[in-house]
Amino acid sequence: MHKIKRDDMVKIISGKDKGKTGKVLKVDTKKNRVIVEGCNMITKHTKPSMANQNGGIINIEGTIDISNVMLVVDGQATRVGFEVKDGKKVRVAKKTGKAID
């Protein structure tokens, strides 16, 4: 079980986009990286294909190391812990002690 999941709101705590918040679009558990909506934008040169007839230069989100993002609960960034409640392992916000899911 990981501390950050898809569709979580996260805050970037280091790098060129420090301070920005966004929704997690994808989590790569093998490489410990996440893609955050609207953050770490990179330019990619694409060849013409059936999906994109013209090709050209497009802007897409790049991956960010999972250690550089923090989960946002109730508008404030917090660390994440785990507790067993009713026989289920749940994520808990360290700042408030509130169960996340």
Rank of each mutant, 00 (worst) to 15 (best):
G38I: 11
L71M: 07
I58Q: 09
V72F: 08
K44W: 06
K88P: 00
T63I: 00
E37H: 15
A77H: 07
V80T: 13
V24E: 05
G56K: 09
K30F: 11
V84S: 04
T78R: 10
H2F: 12
V92L: 07
D17W: 02
V73G: 00
F82A: 04
V90N: 07
A93T: 01
M1I: 05
I58M: 04
V72W: 07
I4S: 04
K94V: 15
G56R: 05
M41K: 15
K98C: 00
V69Y: 04
V36W: 02
K88A: 01
D17N: 07
N68S: 12
D101H: 13
D28A: 05
D74E: 03
M70D: 07
M1L: 06
I35G: 01
D74W: 00
K30I: 15
I13L: 12
R79D: 14
T29A: 13
G81V: 07
V36A: 03
S67P: 01
D101I: 09
I35M: 07
K11H: 02
I57R: 11
D17I: 02
L71D: 00
A77R: 11
E37I: 06
Q53R: 13
P48D: 10
I12F: 03
E61N: 10
M70N: 12
N40L: 12
G62M: 03
T43R: 13
S67G: 06
R79K: 15
G75S: 05
S14I: 02
A77Q: 11
G75I: 06
R91H: 06
A99H: 05
T78Y: 08
K31D: 15
K11M: 15
V72R: 04
T63S: 14
K95G: 02
K44S: 14
K98A: 11
N32C: 09
K85D: 10
I4P: 06
A99N: 12
S49N: 13
K5Q: 14
K85V: 15
L25G: 09
H45R: 13
I13R: 11
G81R: 12
K18L: 12
D8T: 09
K16L: 08
R33F: 08
T46D: 09
K47I: 10
K89D: 04
P48N: 11
Q76S: 15
N40T: 13
D8S: 12
L71N: 00
I57C: 08
L71F: 08
L25Y: 11
N59T: 14
E83P: 00
C39I: 05
I12G: 02
F82L: 04
H45M: 13
T96S: 15
R79C: 04
I100R: 02
V73M: 03
K20A: 13
G19V: 07
R91K: 14
T78W: 08
G15W: 09
V34W: 05
V36R: 02
K94P: 00
K20V: 08
G55W: 01
V34T: 07
V10K: 00
